[in-house]
Design a protein around this nucleic acid. Structure first.
Length: 268
DNA sequence: CATCATACCTGTTCGC
DNA sequence: TGCGAACAGGTATGAT
């Protein structure tokens, strides 16, 4: 699914077009995606979209009358500014001048509608750590968030409880860039290694935002275009190929239930 | 509480 | 070629 750079790109595309427009019509094509149920979404009719915020991989759409719609795209969700019927269309939001379609092959994506401030609890946003490109996410706060943690560093990069927005692609990329094996126990990492990992995370995520995300398989931005970061990936999807730094063969392992690629020579 | 397996879905790729 | 298993950008849930 979209990770931070992909969700950020979508947020920017949608803001540019949809802010200030009233929602005229809503159609649900896959009711299980809607929380608490698709019926409550009729409350959005006639409301004006005032603001779109992103935290980690969640998107929050703030409408008039205190209505907050939250979307998580999970693995294959897409948000497309088009009127054209999509093969895996699960919902359609018709605004005054534009239409937003939620498409999702695997049906894992979820959309919540809440009234007032309780959306953070209802959606789970309340338990997220600081967003990885928020200025409040600093080397010191990362070090503090990892303090006392048990288990591997990859597990904690993916958990959203130490830093929000990192997924499988950028976890592997950042660990490679920092020269840290994904299966290292957090407790074994030096402050210097954690600082390198922090810098790698920030640099890679911001560069990927700059390139409008990575389209490895399904990801498309709000305009239906692929992201441009794929050519910059160093390890993700390259298991068995040569390391671009040392020429050794990249290993593909399973870690924390996820496919994981690393270079045994470059990562210690 | 931490940890693990399993579930949610559909499509593609891999191995025999 | 055919067929089933494994895997895919993520997370929630229940069992241990």
């Amino acid at each position: 699914m979209p990770e931070l750079p992909e969700v950020e790109t979508i947020a920017r595309d949608l803001r540019e077009v949809l802010i200030g427009q009233k929602l005229l019509r809503f159609e649900a094509a896959y009711s299980a995606a809607f929380k608490p149920n698709s019926g409550v979404f009729s409350a959005l009719k006639g409301k004006k979209l005032q603001k779109i915020e992103r935290h980690g991989k969640f998107l929050n759409f703030f409408f008039t009358d205190d209505l907050v719609m939250t979307i998580h795209l999970r693995m294959t969700g897409q948000l497309l500014l088009t009127k054209e019927k999509q093969l895996y269309e699960r919902a359609r939001f018709v605004f005054e001048k534009n239409t937003l379609i939620f498409a999702d092959l695997r049906k894992f994506g979820r959309i919540w509608l809440c009234v007032g401030g309780d959306y953070r609890e209802k959606t789970g946003i309340c338990s997220l750590a600081t967003d990885a490109i928020d200025p409040a996410f600093t080397s010191a706060s990362f070090l503090g968030a990892l303090m006392g943690k048990k288990g591997t560093i990859k597990k904690h990069l993916l958990s959203q409880q130490v830093v929000a927005g990192v997924g499988n692609i950028y976890a592997d990329e950042a660990l490679f860039s920092a020269g840290v094996r994904p299966d290292r126990q957090v407790a074994s990492l030096s402050d210097e290694e954690i600082a390198r990992l922090y810098t790698a995370l920030r640099t890679i995520l911001l560069a990927a935002v700059e390139r409008r995300g990575t389209s490895f398989s399904d990801y498309l931005d709000g305009r239906g275009h692929q992201g441009g970061y794929l050519p910059y990936l160093q390890v993700y999807g390259r298991g068995g190929e040569k390391c671009l730094v040392c020429g050794g063969i990249l290993q593909k392992i399973r870690l924390e239930g996820r496919g994981t690629v690393l270079c045994e020579r470059c990562q210690k």
